[in-house]
Amino acid sequence: MPSSHTSSTSRAPWRRHPRATVLGTLAAVVSALALVLALPGATSAAPSSPQAPQPNPPQPVKPGEAWMGAGVQMHEGDSTDGSVPDEGRRNLVASVHGVDVSSHQGNVSWSTLWNSGVRFAYVKATEATSYKNPYFTQQYNGSYNVGMIRGAYHFAVPSSSSGAAQARYFANNGGGWSKDGKTLPGVLDIEYNPYGSTCYGKSNSAMVSWVRDFVNTYKSLTGRDTVIYTTTNWWKQCTGNSGAFGSSNPLWIARYASSVGELPAGWGFHTFWQYTSSGPTVGDHNLFNGSMDRLKVLANGG
């Protein structure tokens, strides 16, 4: 495995830190997420004609409105209450807390999230080859300016254009990478289709080819291996549980439960875990599977 993947051997022992202090910090993080991400437009004027927050988005979602986990929430549900589950608590010392946001969160108060303990953020940049997040600049630069390590993600729509075309669109509209120590590699959000057919009308082999086309093009443009965000159930159904990417592409697993559970074929461990999704208005909660030092290594290309 390349060193950009973070294994469990990098985790610090739980016993080195008082449980009460860590859980107290956790409570502050969760409270701040619910408060800040529920208040779009709180820090500056909104761009013209943004997508209004949708507590209960229509089915199907309109083009451009998909967020990281939109399809997951529709197909697998979320019975969690937003708190870090038991597995996350056991490894909390070595699990850096982060958020992912899209246009639904509007202008985010990043300083409030930073003060609560959030240390990384992923921002939706693009979708297909026609949509750009109108709040991207405030969200991407704002998280960086308060000290967070940040990155961008692309919501894939494989039925609309090729993987190469979408990778180019992403890299040219916010998904690029620079070795500044605070920019994470781009993410391919490949999940249940919120607009129609679960696998976007593609066979298993065609989907694997599409993903390969995307990640190869993105690497040629940026020098970085794409992080792949998905769920085990979708990956099994739509790629035939392909093991083709586990040795090169870090895994961001979405599973809204008390543990990460079974991973897709090819990956022995996850790099990020989205453990709950409260929908587009509140935003999503994530843990990095390693220490802050290891997150910095990932940002630097190691």
Rank of each mutant, 00 (worst) to 15 (best):
M1H: 02
M1R: 01
T6Y: 01
S7N: 11
T9K: 08
T9S: 14
R11Q: 15
R16Q: 11
P18G: 06
R19E: 14
A20W: 12
T21N: 07
V22M: 12
L23R: 04
L23Y: 06
T25I: 11
V30P: 02
S31E: 12
L35N: 09
L39I: 02
L39P: 00
P40K: 02
G41Q: 08
G41F: 11
T43N: 00
S44T: 15
A45C: 02
A45H: 01
A46N: 11
S48I: 13
P50V: 10
Q51N: 08
P53V: 13
V61L: 12
V61T: 12
P63H: 05
M68W: 07
A70V: 03
M74Y: 05
S79E: 05
G82Y: 06
V84Y: 08
P85W: 08
E87P: 06
N91I: 09
N91F: 13
V93K: 06
V93E: 09
S95A: 14
G98M: 07
V99C: 10
D100S: 15
D100C: 13
V101N: 04
Q105A: 13
W110M: 06
L113C: 11
W114T: 10
N115L: 12
G117F: 04
G117H: 09
F120Y: 09
V123M: 04
P134S: 14
F136H: 03
T137E: 09
G142N: 04
Y144G: 09
N145T: 12
V146I: 00
M148P: 04
R150E: 02
G151C: 02
F155G: 02
F155W: 03
S161Q: 10
A164E: 13
A167W: 07
N172K: 01
N173G: 05
G174K: 01
G176S: 14
W177A: 03
K179C: 15
K179L: 14
K179Y: 10
D180I: 04
K182V: 07
K182C: 03
L184N: 08
P185G: 06
V187A: 02
V187K: 01
D189A: 06
D189C: 06
E191G: 00
N193P: 10
P194C: 02
P194R: 03
G196I: 10
T198Y: 10
G201P: 07
K202I: 06
N204K: 14
M207T: 04
W210H: 07
F214D: 01
V215A: 00
V215I: 07
Y218E: 01
K219A: 06
T222P: 04
G223Q: 04
R224P: 04
T226D: 00
V227S: 01
Y229H: 02
T230A: 03
T231G: 10
N233V: 15
T239K: 11
G243H: 05
N249W: 10
L251N: 05
W252M: 08
W252V: 13
A254N: 05
A257P: 01
V260H: 01
P264K: 00
P264M: 00
P264E: 00
A265S: 06
W267A: 00
G268C: 02
G268M: 01
F269A: 09
T271K: 05
F272Y: 11
F272L: 13
Q274F: 02
Y275E: 05
S278W: 11
P280T: 14
D284W: 07
D284A: 14
H285W: 15
H285E: 14
H285L: 15
N286F: 03
N289V: 00
G290V: 03
M292A: 12
D293Y: 13
L295Q: 01
K296R: 15
A299V: 06
